[in-house]
Nucleic acid binder design. Structure first.
Length: 197
DNA sequence: TGGCAGATTTTA
DNA sequence: AAAATCTGCCAA
């Protein structure tokens, strides 16, 4: 079942928690890949200097100001891309960064795209999952409800469920220096597909 | 206009 | 630990 506009319209912090356990699905020309979201981070419009929108709209972050349920894909460190789910009110500039997936379907395709065999390494980081899922800059501004890249609440997918469970936990966000103390990272504690150092 | 920090990953 | 290397700030 594809998630509707009500889901994306939740307050950003709440959406970051609600996204845990849902399925990111991409029906690309190369085939379908599916990953279960196990780690997210919220980026807010108020009192959050780490948020890309905190200094206003630019060419790069423009998608962040779109309606909830829009994809925000941006280039980081000139090398990798990160994937966000836009949230909040249109024009506000809030989003949820998806940081890690548990590979569920299309694992051979993910391995090919990543050039890596080991399943826990396929999507255990924001740059890694973008490569594994075949997400590109072309997905920036895309709609997660109507496009080929979408989010399902539940699913009966072909491959065996690798889900290892885990309790939801909260911590400071990763890789930032400003606003680093805010507990806006949500993940499934003990899950082997969460990003790690 | 130049230098640099940044929501990262990989290799030495 | 350091490279790879793009975008946007902020200081000259």
């Amino acid at each position: 079942m594809i998630l509707g506009i009500e889901f994306y319209s939740q307050p950003t912090k709440q959406l970051a928690r609600s996204l845990l356990g849902t399925f990111l699905v991409h029906d690309s020309p190369q085939g379908r890949t599916v990953g279960r979201i196990v780690e997210t981070e919220a980026y807010l419009s108020q009192n959050d200097p780490a948020c890309h929108a905190s200094r206003g709209k630019t060419k790069r972050n423009a998608a962040m100001f779109g309606p909830a349920g829009t994809s925000y894909v941006y280039l980081i460190y000139g090398m990798y891309y990160c994937f966000n789910v836009v949230s909040g009110k249109e024009g506000e500039g809030e989003a949820v960064l998806v940081r890690a997936l548990e590979p569920v379907e299309g694992i051979p395709l993910m391995q090919k795209r990543r050039g890596v065999e080991n399943i826990p390494e396929l999507a255990s980081g924001p740059g890694k999952l973008v490569m594994a899922m075949g997400i590109t800059a072309n997905h920036n501004f895309g709609c997660l409800r109507t496009g080929l890249l979408k989010i399902h609440a539940t699913g009966s997918f072909e491959s065996p469920d690798l889900w290892a469970g885990g309790r939801m936990k909260c911590s400071p966000r990763v890789g930032i220096t400003v606003g680093a103390e805010l507990p806006l990272r949500f993940f499934l504690d003990g899950n082997p597909f969460v990003s790690r150092r």
